[in-house]
Amino acid sequence: MIELRFHRDLYAGTAIDSALGRFAGVARFVRREDGADFVVEVHAQSPGRERTVAGELANFALGLTVEAGGPDR
């Protein structure tokens, strides 16, 4: 399992949800909130696949946040 923490000051929650939607079929995700962080646990069949999926998910979350004009205000 890889745990990703997306801080609210840096990421839009809607961007993370949208990114999770795009990757729904390729791994299992557990999403929760912890203080100022959106936390996403990535569960996949192998460590290599987990690294790839977590990395791509983070990139999508960043890209969609930038497209949205920044974090939720």
């Binding site: 997306f6 840096l10 990421y11 990139n59 890209g63 946040t65 920044g70």
Partner: peptide, 22 residues
């Protein structure tokens, strides 16, 4: 600024996995 950080980070998502932390 955060905008500049986004701009630079975005330029690297083609070849890297990029994560921003606080």
């Amino acid at each position: 600024s955060l905008d500049a950080i986004y701009a630079a980070a975005y330029a690297f998502i083609g070849r890297c996995y990029v994560l921003l932390e606080r």
